[in-house]
Design a protein around this nucleic acid. Structure first.
Lengths: 342, 342
DNA sequence: TACTGGGACGAAAACGTTTTCGTGTTGAAA
DNA sequence: TTTCAACACGAAAACGTTTTCGTCCCAGTA
């Protein structure tokens, strides 16, 4: 086991000073041709690599960005990570991933850990509990310390920072409009409780689409789910008691539960009831019937978030600050869970 | 925007030395009651938190572990990350996630980045390309530098380090034994090319089960897939030409493609053909019919890996070194894609 | 010969900690 | 009065870099 090579060791070995070694390796013109060549050869031969930690301390930059997501098993978030990773790596950054498990406390803890020098900036999507509490002091604090943040997907209005979101209202509208176009009139909505911003916005889209087509809004056809755990049973109970010809679900799980329930009732998807989900999930593609969905382009969101953050990180502080909000447009991917246009 | 508080600033503010501040905050008995109280009160009030980078440099520990996985969109790997994260956080560690995209070069690059001080140790699953090349010099190097590594799932025999694997042979055997038990005799295997260790081992299990039950092995019933991209078409072509009553697929995607193909042929799953997959995937649970699978317990693997690594990290170097291999047992989860025992 | 300029290098500070080893002051014992 | 221990605190080194500012020496010029 040989310990890592440092400038000091090279200096001692070659009988020059540390500064000479450092300069030689950085191709400074201060150092004579001969010594420079000798030092570089030595460093190359023994595979010298500068210590990142020391560099971080010196430069006050870690070249690391932290990303905090509510849950990793949600396929959407993994595609976001993938996008962040891609751009970050291209720009020479590392990615530190933390999970908040949708818990406010864990989110705060994670941010505190990472804020003490571990990362140069944050990319995050708020925990459900955080949105419920509406307590964003931890975000305000790190931003106030001059650490750039990018919020994505689950964002908070009251925080001023860069944001990357999808147009949830239009996304929801697109889905419902499609259902209307193929002839559905009794369209159910399976959403989340309102404090989850995306659930609220997609609900808006749902209502807008109905209104624009002169269909009255029936609150009884709207289900708001709080706990993922019980969603399957809730959806089952909800659908069994209602006569619908279309379902718009704000995520993949709800959509699939809806399909199952409908099939269990002896009805067919899409002949009797058309179903649209809201997701990028693998599940939708491979499910039978494959699901028509509003796609979120998680990868794109991750890429945009990373670009936004790095751009801010590499700007000189003198340049004036303003915050952008990037809206990633949604797409409607028509598959087999909806009737074809008639 | 207020910059971060440091020991130096506290010292200047309170007109004491830096060392006094440091000692006071660490409750050293060297410092008088009064000064100590004053310093602690000040630090608390202004929310002082020590700088992680400086600590890392001083202690030569980063309290960060790096995990490198081949692809994040594979659900199995995300559950592993989740397990690693959980244990790491409990022990006060951060997790740095890198993706190799199954590329040898990216794997090497990632390791080099992280090895220069960014992490204290590694947890990784080898890229497909790495296994194909059989080139593990990058691993040997970091291990030789005294950086602990834990390999999981896709491991290499020739590297000596801790490992966490599942018993792929027994897992495969279990699956095929189950198929035999429910009456299948013409059992197809859909596997990967042999240099992916898990594919090879599960193939062993398949053959063992057949042999032990006196069923002759028909190589024509074994399909080895190289490229994920074309898997769907390959599986379709393969199954269309063969008469089988059972299929064992070494992963989720293959299993689902198999089910689709079988249904397209007008046959039923599980009545005509029973299908078993090998995975933890969400897909299997929610697919219709839900898939009987050999479960890999990714979360457990992640937890065990993290525990193993941290244990090694926190051991004094004097204690003698030996390498463990933990085998996480597989479970057979019977769902609807296999006939019931007759 | 004396001065100047530049080439080639080294010393030291700085980043933010922790820790070892002083050092000065006090009080009590001799 | 002297001596010594205990106490309370500070100086400085160390972790591995980068960078600013010397310093030394030699060649060229007057």
């Amino acid at each position: 086991m040989k310990p890592k090579l440092t400038l000091k060791k090279i200096a001692k070995e070659l009988d020059v000073s540390i500064s000479t070694v450092s300069k030689a390796l950085r191709d400074s013109s201060e150092i004579g041709e001969e010594t420079r060549a000798k030092i570089k050869a030595f460093a190359k031969h023994y595979n010298y690599k500068p210590n990142n930690i020391a560099l971080s301390l010196k430069n006050r930059k870690t070249k690391t960005i932290g990303i905090i997501i509510p849950e990793i098993v949600h396929h959407f978030f993994t595609t976001v990570i993938s996008g962040v990773e891609k751009v970050a790596n291209e720009m020479g950054y590392n990615v530190l991933v933390c999970l908040s498990d949708n818990s406010f406390d864990k989110e705060v803890l994670n941010m505190e850990m990472l804020a003490n020098g571990s990362t140069d900036g944050f990319i995050l999507s708020l925990a459900k509990e955080t949105m419920q509490k509406g307590d964003y002091h931890h975000l305000a604090e790190v931003i106030n310390q001059g650490m750039p943040c990018v919020l994505f997907d689950r964002v908070a209005e009251d925080i001023s920072c860069d944001k990357v979101i999808i147009d949830d209202v239009t996304g929801g509208k697109k889905a419902v409009q499609h259902l209307i176009d193929i002839g559905c009139r009794k369209i159910a909505l399976i959403s989340t409780v309102d404090y989850v911003s995306v659930g609220k916005l997609r609900t808006h889209g749902y209502k807008q689409a109905l209104a624009e087509n002169g269909i009255s809004i029936n609150e009884d056809l709207i289900l708001k789910i709080e706990e993922m755990e019980d969603s399957e049973k809730e959806i089952e109970a909800f659908l069994k008691e209602r006569e619908v010809d279309g379902v718009f679900a704000v995520n993949e799980h709800f959509a699939i539960s809806a399909v199952k329930t409908i099939q269990d009732q002896g009805k067919n998807v899409p002949e009797d009831v058309s179903v649209i989900g809201f997701t990028d999930g693998e599940l939708s593609k491979r499910f039978i019937p494959s699901l028509t969905t509003v796609s979120q382009h998680g990868m794109r969101m991750g890429e945009e978030s990373a670009r936004l953050l790095i751009e801010k990180l590499e700007r000189t502080p003198s340049e004036e600050d303003y915050y952008k909000t990037i809206i990633v447009e949604t797409g409607l991917v028509v598959r087999d869970s909806t009737k074809s246009r008639k």
